[in-house]
Computed example of a mutant assay.
Amino acid sequence: MSHLALVTLVVDDYDRAIGWFQTALDFRLVEDVPSLTDDGRPKRWVVVAPKSGGCAILLARADGQAQADRIGDQTGGRVGFFLHSDDYQADYGRMIAAGVRFEEAPRETEYGRVAKFRDLWGNRWDLWQRK
């Protein structure tokens, strides 16, 4: 069986999204390739990923009002993204210093330590470390 390589996150601006992922989450820019839509309009193939590897995110600039309407709420208000941490305190502190908005203080659960935060667009994430 293959592995999950990419998930798409619809954003309003490529460069702003790249900057946020690099600064707030310490991701690396994997690819940034100019491209064209099926009808010839310019777009980019932009991929960011955690420096440690794993599933990457394809940043897709909204194309049309229907996609723009979903920016920030791609999962209907549920947590849709889970960022695993090997050093929770360090990652949490770095993210706070970078301006990440957490919805709660870190808490212990049956599956590990977790705190919910929102990305630049309002999508909900968990910063999570397994027990």
Rank of each mutant, 00 (worst) to 15 (best):
H3K: 14
L4S: 09
A5T: 15
L6Y: 09
L6M: 13
L6K: 08
L6E: 13
L6T: 03
V7K: 10
V7L: 02
V11E: 08
V11D: 05
D12H: 12
D12R: 14
D13V: 05
D13H: 14
Y14P: 01
R16I: 11
R16K: 13
R16D: 11
A17T: 01
I18C: 00
I18R: 00
T23D: 13
T23H: 10
A24S: 14
A24D: 12
R28H: 13
R28I: 13
L29G: 00
E31Q: 05
D32V: 01
P34D: 05
L36M: 14
T37W: 00
D38Q: 12
D39T: 15
G40E: 06
R41H: 10
W45D: 01
W45T: 00
W45P: 01
V46P: 00
V46C: 10
V48S: 04
A49L: 01
P50T: 00
P50I: 02
G53W: 01
C55E: 09
A56S: 07
A56T: 01
L58K: 12
A60W: 15
R61L: 00
Q65G: 13
A66E: 14
Q67P: 01
Q67Y: 06
D69E: 14
I71H: 04
G72T: 03
D73Y: 05
Q74K: 08
T75I: 10
G76V: 10
G76C: 06
V79H: 11
G80D: 09
G80V: 07
F81V: 07
F81Y: 15
F81K: 06
F82D: 11
S85R: 12
S85T: 06
D86C: 11
D86G: 15
D87N: 08
D91M: 09
D91F: 03
Y92G: 01
Y92L: 01
M95D: 07
M95G: 02
M95N: 08
I96N: 12
A97E: 13
A98K: 09
G99S: 04
V100T: 11
R101D: 12
R101S: 11
R101F: 10
F102G: 09
F102I: 06
E103G: 13
E104T: 09
A105H: 13
P106Q: 04
R107A: 06
R107P: 04
T109Y: 11
Y111D: 14
G112W: 04
R113Q: 11
V114M: 09
V114I: 12
A115N: 06
K116I: 13
F117S: 04
R118Y: 03
R118L: 00
D119S: 03
L120N: 01
W121D: 14
G122S: 09
N123I: 03
R124F: 13
W125F: 07
W125S: 10
D126K: 09
Q129H: 06
Q129K: 14
K131A: 12
